[in-house]
Amino acid sequence: MGEERDRRDQILEAAFEEFSAKGFRGATIKSIAEAAGLQSPALIYWYFPDKEALFREVLGSRIPVLRAVRDPARLLERPPEEVLPLIARRYLSTFDNPAAQRMARLLVGEAMRRPEIAEIFGNAVIKRMLGFLKSYMAHQVELGRLRPHDVRSSARAFIGMLLPQVGGKVFFPAIREDGLTDEEHLRNVVGIFLEGLRPERKQGWTP
Rank of each mutant, 00 (worst) to 15 (best):
M1W: 14
E4L: 14
D6M: 14
R7C: 06
R7D: 03
R8Q: 13
D9C: 08
L12S: 09
F16M: 08
F16S: 07
F19I: 11
F19K: 03
S20I: 09
K22T: 02
G23S: 14
F24I: 13
R25L: 13
G26V: 13
I29D: 05
K30R: 15
I32L: 05
I32P: 06
A33N: 04
A36N: 07
L38S: 04
L43Q: 14
W46Q: 14
Y47D: 03
P49T: 06
D50K: 08
E52R: 13
A53Q: 11
L54N: 03
L54V: 03
F55R: 03
V58T: 07
G60I: 04
S61M: 04
P64M: 01
R67Y: 01
A68C: 01
V69K: 01
R70H: 02
A73M: 00
L76R: 01
R78I: 03
E82C: 03
E82A: 07
V83H: 00
L84C: 02
P85N: 01
L86Y: 07
I87P: 00
R89F: 00
R90V: 01
Q101Y: 00
M103K: 09
L107R: 12
G109W: 08
A111C: 14
E116I: 11
A118E: 09
A118I: 05
E119K: 14
A124P: 05
A124N: 08
I126Q: 13
A138W: 07
A138L: 09
V141K: 10
G144K: 05
L146P: 04
R147I: 01
R147F: 03
S154I: 05
R156N: 01
F158T: 05
I159R: 10
I159S: 02
L162G: 00
L162H: 02
P164W: 08
V166S: 01
F171S: 06
F171M: 07
F172Q: 06
A174D: 14
G179F: 10
L180F: 01
E183G: 02
E184A: 10
H185I: 04
R187G: 05
I192E: 12
F193I: 02
L194M: 09
R198P: 04
Q203I: 14
W205I: 13
P207V: 15
